[in-house]
Nucleic acid binder design. Structure first.
Lengths: 233, 233
DNA sequence: GCTCTCAAAAAGTCAGACTTATTCATCACA
DNA sequence: TGTGATGAATAAGTCTGACTTTTTGAGAGC
């Protein structure tokens, strides 16, 4: 998923990033480069590179004679995929999951509308294939296969929209859907209503019915929000 | 706006970042750290820090024995505020502006709905104040004052929604609105219809009418899209 | 034509010395 | 007593040069 072991500075980030995003250092806390270098047993240069990356994510701020201070959560680059992963792996996973699901509920319907307007014939076919794959795997605890097609479906919707900002949320949605299956409750077969909705979205896109595609996708995301409300009230 | 002069590596980024996001190096292009260090007249350590930051933005990928290769646009972290600024300052500014406006049209109505449900009394007052400020500056070429209140208005909507992902888009929206006034055509007074819509959104939020707040905000963003269609067909 | 070996290339890492900005405490002066 | 200047301490910032490690590509040998 991530890119582990891309050098020593990567290893440092894999430890320090989750710690900071988990809130282990309250905002305003001061870290010192030298101490961190000692703690991780790396040279100052490596440590400095790691700090620079954290700084570019707005997680910390480095100032002379002061040190590396942790910034308040409100300033973090919460759209950075790495930050999202760190937070999803940490303590405020439920909170993050809700934020992202609300984001989905805003983005995906509009994306579906655009997809209905702009999708190529190939993308339409891909979408239908995904929906049919979901149907095929929706019974008998074939959760892995189902998830795979579900993720692919939403990824097509987002990329076929033709909007680069939407397209880049494909990974985020994948992470949310995967997390829902893996970590949280999903023992039973998927909701048949949801499966049907996906099929109908694919149909609407193929029929170039933008209004219907948007509305049906809205129903899907509303369902996702309700599911979350049940899991984490 | 940005944070210029935060060290040598910052200066390097301010030059190299815009170059890459402008597409001056086609995807797959190979840069070498040593050459870059020479070009910018900085030490390798400084150059390495800059490369690490570009790497964390997924603009480039650094591999041993190969060099620093530029990644395809589709992989860039397009939500990184710095990347957004670089692109807005560059050649594909119109394209970027459209992407962001579409994003706004998806996010802001939902944010307004949530704000109507969750805003504190203080936030309601703030919103009303912004709307009235817009009215007050909407006649007689007081564009600066108008813009200020417009930006503040949308920022309140996004933060008061209570969703951290929405809140972080405040800066982006500010950049879009500011850019529209400064760079593009905006000689005349603001559209009176738009001003009225803002006032009515504030009213709807105060009245806790989520449906109306969402619908009115949708009209605002539709207007923004139409305005863009006129400017850049 | 194939694999295997080896050398070159470029990033990665480290250690140490030096520079610079910032803070804070001290002290002189009003 | 308050205030502003002075200076020393501090931690980040920078540079240099040597060394390591991984990866690639060319050439040798089969």
């Amino acid at each position: 998923m991530s890119t582990p072991g891309r050098g020593l500075h990567g290893h440092v980030l894999d430890t320090l990033g989750p710690e900071i995003t988990a809130g282990e250092y309250p905002p305003g806390s001061v870290l010192r480069t030298d101490e961190l270098a000692q703690r991780f047993d790396v040279s100052r240069s490596v440590m400095r590179e790691a700090v620079r990356v954290l700084e570019s994510m707005h997680l910390v701020e480095s100032r002379r004679r002061v040190g590396v201070t942790v910034r308040p959560k409100a300033e973090w680059n919460v759209y950075d995929p790495q930050v999202i992963r760190w937070r999803l792996a940490g303590a405020d996973r439920p909170h993050q999951l809700r934020s992202l699901t609300v984001l989905r509920s805003a983005i995906e319907p509009v994306a579906a509308r655009l997809t209905a307007q702009h999708a190529t014939a190939e993308q339409c076919a891909e979408l239908t294939e995904c929906a049919l794959g979901m149907v095929a795997h929706s019974r008998g605890h074939q959760l892995e296969g189902y998830l795979l097609h579900d993720v692919a479906f939403h990824r097509v919707i987002l990329t076929a929209s033709g909007n680069e900002m939407f397209a880049r949320l494909g990974d985020v949605v994948a992470e949310v859907l995967t997390g829902r299956t893996q970590h949280d409750v999903m023992f039973e077969d998927p909701d048949p209503a949801a499966v049907t909705l996906h099929v109908r979205v694919a149909e609407a896109v193929r029929a170039r019915d933008a209004d219907r595609a948007e509305e049906l996708t809205r129903e899907i995301t509303v369902g996702a929000l309700q599911e979350l409300d049940i899991l984490v009230p």
